[in-house]
Design a binder for these strands. Structure first.
Lengths: 145, 145
DNA sequence: GTGCATGCAAATCCTTTGCAGTGAT
DNA sequence: ATCACTGCAAAGGATTTGCATGCAC
């Protein structure tokens, strides 16, 4: 799918979500969505905020955080808490669900998929009678090891 | 294994570790180790610190954090970053490695084991040529779901 | 005796909150 | 016209740091 088409659909999904949840469709929210879907990396809130400033969008940190929360709720982005002061976000609409392998030396992030992860969440949900809408799997290692 | 025997071995392992890493064997470090091995829960640094205060051990937060770090390095405890301001520790010597399922509603923590987790870490290590000494798997769900 | 570890408090980091003003409905 | 959303700056909580003192070696 083309990048523009993906963004168009993401905007539509966000718009629908805001409507359903009686949230106002502000310019700021959509500017932030656009910015995120232009990026292809694992970014943090500060670098997103900095990029806004640099492009002369007068958007506050509070709004960045509020919008990231909304986008997370409607699953247009995913958030990964890689460590205490190390939260990272990435766009998720139109991409495969995946997990992360992080190098403890150079902080390189590798994405991987393994069907067994889903099997585990399903099985544990059954065993303990939990509905499991979300999980976090992060492998920490040394590259070239 | 009896609790006292487990603690005795943990103390010995800690002592050896400190010696090998040229760290001083202070009273504070061993008092903290004892305190942790008396507990059977997933605790945070503040509750450990509070318990010290309550028992009239004059130990500072700095020392609590320093010692937790050392105990983590020598694998006598494990640390789980359940969310940004939500780190939890538990003793790990003499216990099976396990992962966690957390209820988003009542914060209940369930421990589980699944051999597929280890298979995944091994496989990804092979594929990406990483040495993977550590990982984190946390499932977030709703109980009674 | 030397100098690393400790206690204390201030500093730090990311994130959240309070408030007054703005703009979406 | 309403009142939820925004920008700004100050507050917040967990953890780290700096410095003077004390204790392990």
């Amino acid at each position: 799918m083309k990048q523009e088409e993906l963004l168009r659909q993401a905007r539509q999904l966000f718009s629908d979500y805001l409507e359903q949840h009686h949230q106002r469709k502000t310019t700021e929210k959509f500017v932030i969505l656009d910015e995120i879907y232009l990026r292809n990396d694992h970014f943090d809130s500060e670098s997103l905020y900095a990029e806004m400033k640099q492009k002369n969008f007068n958007i506050s940190r509070a709004t960045v955080y509020n919008t990231l929360e909304l986008l997370k709720e409607c699953r247009l982005i995913s958030k990964h808490q890689l460590g205490k002061n190390h939260a990272r976000f990435e766009k998720s609409y139109g991409f495969w669900q995946h997990d992360h392998l992080i190098c403890l030396d150079c902080s390189k992030v590798i994405e991987f998929c393994d069907p067994r992860v889903h099997q585990i969440t399903t099985r544990m949900g059954e065993i303990f009678h939990f509905d499991i809408p979300h999980y976090s799997l992060i492998l920490y290692g040394h590259c070239q090891g």
